[in-house]
Design a protein around this nucleic acid. Structure first.
Length: 429
DNA sequence: TAACCGTGGCC
DNA sequence: TGGCCAAGGTT
């Protein structure tokens, strides 16, 4: 294997000697000083703010984070305030940003910093990496940006920039780290790392790189070889799984709706939702030799959900064609879900299906409004009694107008919007 | 190693 | 509409 950054086919020195590397660093820092964006987390800095911004920016666009970051700092100005907050307060503030494990980890980190580090973030990468949610990249970014440590920080942007600079198709994380460390400006590592990311975000972009305006294009092997568009190599992704859910919108006598908290780990962990249960797979949606056989369905899932009760109404916009199979099973599954919570009711309205795309999941929610007004069992298991100090009840009755006060994932917010648009009064008559 | 974990914008 | 992607970390 040819040593990275050594002689190229054209015979030019390409980041292989100290002089060239020095020129590269200077051009990079000059670019950042003159063309770097004015972003909130680049203004007033302290270790807490740097860490918050890095958590928020994991796999998330700058434009999404921008306002959320400012709002977060107003709500949780420092370690102490964040550590003192409840899980619900933290998740509510994170609502809509996705990857909610980040919020839980940031919260845990704040408590660790307060309880074990005297309220000060440790500056060494090794100590940083022991904090929940802090990996190789974040440790390097915080150590260099907040504490001036000369350590590399390789994120997706930096990886792309490096792959192009040296025309590497698919280098290992170790290679990238070594390479980044070799190029790193020894006395201004924070600015250097940020400048590399800024270059990747605004100039050396994935799709249509702006090579004519690139401050370091004279150092770029891919530019010279015409391989910029193919660097780095893309890996094929597996197609997302398809899942259908029934969502039970249970309404009690007072017109309140029931929310339950999802379990800590896993998808949307700790977030609130209308009680939800997976629907049996649609035969037509399955690939041969995969998934469940038809007889694996729950025996009553295909029965008439409304036998012996009033007929189910369909809200305007509710699908009645190709979703028919799922839409038909949804009321029964929704009632079963509520039965597990000790509740018995009557399905009265099917709302329109809500489609939602997760990274590795294509979900469809089939909301069913269930009236509990004639039920005698709306109280006991649903009491608001906290189970312990930190973990308030896992189920709560909520006035629809107050749903905003709960950390609902986006798909659940869509269901809530439909519910409010449908006008509860009409339904309960 | 590869799967899992959200969301919104873009084409 | 649907696939791709964006300042990763965890298991």
């Amino acid at each position: 294997m040819q040593a990275s950054g050594s002689k190229t086919e054209s015979g030019r020195n390409d980041l292989g000697d100290a002089k060239t590397v020095g020129e590269f660093r200077a051009a990079l820092l000059d670019f950042f000083a003159r063309r770097g964006r004015d972003l909130p987390w680049r203004r007033a800095r302290n270790p807490y703010r740097v860490l918050v911004s890095e958590f928020m920016l994991q796999q998330t666009r700058v434009e999404t984070v921008r306002e959320r970051y400012v709002r977060w700092l107003r709500r949780f100005p420092g370690w102490r305030e964040l550590a003192a907050a409840s899980r619900d307060e933290v998740l509510l503030e994170w609502k809509g940003m996705g990857y909610y494990a980040r919020a839980r980890n940031l919260h845990r980190t704040a408590r660790i910093v307060c309880e074990r580090h005297g309220g000060e973030l440790p500056p060494e990468p090794k100590a940083l990496k022991e904090l929940p949610g802090v990996g190789d990249y974040t440790a390097g970014a915080v150590a260099s940006i907040a504490f001036g440590r000369a350590v590399p920080a390789v994120d997706g942007n930096v990886r792309r920039v490096l792959c192009r600079l040296l025309d590497l198709p698919d280098p290992s994380p170790r290679e990238l780290r070594d390479l980044a460390a070799r190029l790193l400006h020894p006395t201004r590592p924070g600015h250097h790392n940020e400048a590399m990311m800024e270059l990747g975000a605004t100039v050396c972009t994935p799709r249509t790189p702006r090579c004519p305006t690139c401050p370091v294009r004279s150092h770029c092997a891919a530019h010279r070889l015409g391989t910029v568009r193919e660097r780095p190599l893309r890996k094929p992704r597996r197609p997302p799984r398809r899942v259908d859910y029934a969502a039970a919108v249970a309404i009690d006598r007072a017109g309140r709706v029931l929310l339950v908290r999802r379990p800590e780990g896993g998808l949307l962990g700790g977030m609130w939702e209308f009680p939800t249960a997976e629907l049996p797979c649609d035969v037509a949606n399955r690939r041969p030799n995969h998934g469940l056989d038809r007889r694996d369905r729950p025996a009553d899932a295909t029965g008439d959900p409304n036998s012996g009760s009033e007929p189910l109404r369909r809200a305007a916009g509710a699908s009645s064609n190709h979703n028919m199979h799922h839409a038909a099973a949804a009321p029964t599954v929704a009632l079963e879900r509520l039965a597990k919570l000790g509740l018995r009711g009557v399905a009265i309205v099917a709302l329109a299906p809500v489609r939602h795309a997760f990274t590795h999941l294509r979900a469809r929610y089939h909301p069913v409004v269930v009236s509990l007004r004639d039920s005698a069992a709306t109280a006991p298991p649903m009491a608001d009694a906290p189970t312990n100090g930190e973990d308030p009840a896992t189920a709560r009755w909520v006035e629809p107008a107050r749903l905003d006060a709960f950390a609902l994932p986006v798909a659940q917010q869509k269901i809530a919007e439909q519910l409010i648009a449908e006008q509860l009064g009409d339904m309960l008559e």
